[in-house]
């Protein structure tokens, strides 16, 4: 062959010419602290979420009194040293109730995010890989998405009795279409990636392609989506409880504390104020965490697909 080099390199020489300045040492600060410094939104969001988890887990120790204990003599007290957030119309300590409410909110948020992600991932993978299933599943999801999630959740709650488990189930069902669409979209674009073609050409079987090449690359956008679902599930839970279709009144949740305080809003605003602040901070924290993760994991991934 003219013009081409024919002799193989001598045995000792096995480094490409452009490898001279190969791989300079990574300058950015390594370790966990460095990661947090580079991603302040994750640091702030993560801190607030952890704080809320702490509050929820240790609510019985942090609370002053039983959140369900009635004290008719101490109704609608203003916030004070004894009752930090005041008391409601039945004399229950709002501070204790708000702390215990964090348990419901976080349980619902995390459970919905987890369940919707797992089920949505499975559905998305199936419809991304099987054309026939895709056209059926996606039309069904389109139908579900045409109903507002809240309305769907209310309708589902109307079919059962109020309990935290049923709230999780109802919101999960309402959130699944969003996850499965995202996963399907990601799977369809990953299937076209040259490295998937190369894997097929080098004899990898389809189950291994999914496990090794598709799934790991789906997890980053899915994690981001899961945080948004967590935040929106907490809001949906609060709405359901507020209108009396969610958590039963016996269990304090931010939604039903606000619902009970609604009648007294103009004279005793603090009953609504404190659970609302906690809900806002938690949702904000989870969203910040999601934004931070999105930027850290894949800057190109859109917030919603």
């Amino acid at each position: 062959m003219d013009g081409g080099r024919t002799a193989p390199l001598p045995p000792g020489v096995n480094v490409a010419p452009e490898m001279g300045d190969i791989m300079p040492p990574v300058k950015a600060k390594k370790g966990f602290i460095g990661f947090l410094r580079r991603n302040p939104t994750i640091a702030i969001g993560g801190f607030l979420v952890l704080l809320m988890v702490f509050v929820a887990v240790f609510a019985p120790y942090l609370a002053h009194r039983d959140p369900t204990a009635l004290a008719p003599a101490l109704r609608t007290r203003e916030p004070s040293a004894q009752f930090w957030f005041g008391t409601d119309m039945l004399g229950r300590d709002v501070y204790s109730r708000v702390l215990h409410g964090a348990r419901v909110s976080l349980t619902v948020g995390f459970s919905v995010a987890f369940c919707a992600s797992v089920i949505g991932l499975a559905i998305g993978l199936v419809s991304g890989f099987i054309r026939l299933a895709d056209s059926i599943i996606m039309r069904f999801m389109d139908g579900m998405m045409s109903i507002p999630p809240i309305l769907l959740a209310i309708a589902l709650m109307a079919l059962t009795r109020g309990s935290v488990g049923n709230v999780v189930l109802a919101i999960t069902i309402a959130e699944i279409p969003r996850v499965s669409r995202l996963v399907r979209g990601v799977v369809l674009s990953l299937r076209e990636q040259p490295y998937v073609d190369a894997a097929v050409a080098s004899g990898t079987r389809t189950p291994m392609i999914i496990l090794r090449h598709i799934l790991p690359n789906t997890l980053a956008p899915l994690t981001v989506q899961a945080t948004y679902i967590c935040a929106s599930a907490m809001i949906t839970e609060a709405i359901l409880s507020f209108i009396g279709a969610g958590t039963p009144p016996i269990i304090p949740s931010w939604g039903n504390i606000m619902a009970e305080g609604r009648a007294l809003w103009q004279v005793k605003p603090y009953i609504v104020f404190f659970p609302a602040v906690f809900l806002s901070i938690t949702v904000l924290a989870v969203n910040l965490l999601g934004d931070g993760l999105r930027d850290a994991l894949d800057p190109r991934m859109a917030k919603r697909l």
């Binding site: 990636q193 040259p194 490295y195 190369a198 790991p216």
Partner: peptide, 10 residues
């Protein structure tokens, strides 16, 4: 393949 970036699984 052509694109050295998308031809390797990240």
């Amino acid at each position: 393949f052509q694109d050295p970036f998308s031809s390797l699984n990240p």
